[in-house]
């Protein structure tokens, strides 16, 4: 095949946008993305567990899951950053493993009116050791809490930063992504040279 020079195919990186249902993941992805936020469906086949097998016929169930994703091209460095909004409904959690594979980190969006909705995402990333930050999406009618209050409410260790954002604003969404990269950089040992 003719296209094998690395110039044609950029380096891909992936960041996940997680959080509860309706917290603004689609909005966030759409605001940060340089392309129209795209929505696709992934068809999942899951081998069912603990059911009768009919003479060699595999028992499988299929379901479709909507996925939001966006893209930010960093032309000068040959990098394409993909943003994937994770499916918020609990029943799709089994999909997260595939989405998480190769992800640099995650932004967990939180709504202070129902902080508990992001507990699961926080637990998930903590358990997997995937670096993340919590971005509090500032809904207009939501009460403003300070960072320590939110940290306490989430039971979040000092390791994960909390930032405020407005998921509708590109600058604000991108700023949350920058904060995540800063957070990742802070965990990298400084070169001794």
């Amino acid at each position: 095949m003719a296209y094998n020079d690395s110039e044609e195919f950029p380096t891909q990186v992936k960041i996940l946008i997680a959080g509860g249902f309706g917290v603004g993941k689609t909005t966030f992805v759409g605001a940060a993305s340089e392309i129209e936020p795209l929505n696709t469906e992934e068809l999942i086949t899951t081998a069912s567990v603990g059911v009768d097998h009919l003479g060699g016929i595999e028992q499988k169930s299929t379901t479709t899951v909507a996925l939001d994703f966006g893209r930010i091209t960093i032309e000068q460095h040959g990098i394409v950053l993909y943003l994937f909004g994770t499916p918020g409904q609990e029943r799709f959690w089994f999909m997260w493993d595939e989405l998480c594979a190769g992800a640099l980190g995650a932004v967990v969006l939180a709504d202070t009116r129902r902080l508990e909705d992001c507990f699961e995402a926080v637990d998930f990333f903590e358990n997997r050791g995937i670096p993340f930050l919590v971005a509090v999406n500032e809904f207009e009618d939501a009460f403003r809490y300070d960072e320590e209050e939110i940290r306490a409410a989430l039971g979040l260790g000092p390791g994960a930063p909390i930032v405020l954002c407005d998921a509708r604003e590109r600058g604000s969404a991108v700023s949350a992504l920058r904060s995540l990269i800063h957070h990742l950089l802070a965990a990298v040992p400084t070169p001794s040279a």
Binding site: S6, F9, P10, T11, Q12, V13, K14, I72, I74, Q76, H77, I79, L81, A101, G102, A103, L104, G105, P131, V174, L177, R178, I181, H182, L184, L185, A187, V188, P191
Partner: peptide, 19 residues
Amino acid sequence: RRASDPKDRVLLEKLLDGL
């Protein structure tokens, strides 16, 4: 080329610069 090492300083700095 998948860059998936969250400890790749060069990559992170490029990303930050781009963002």
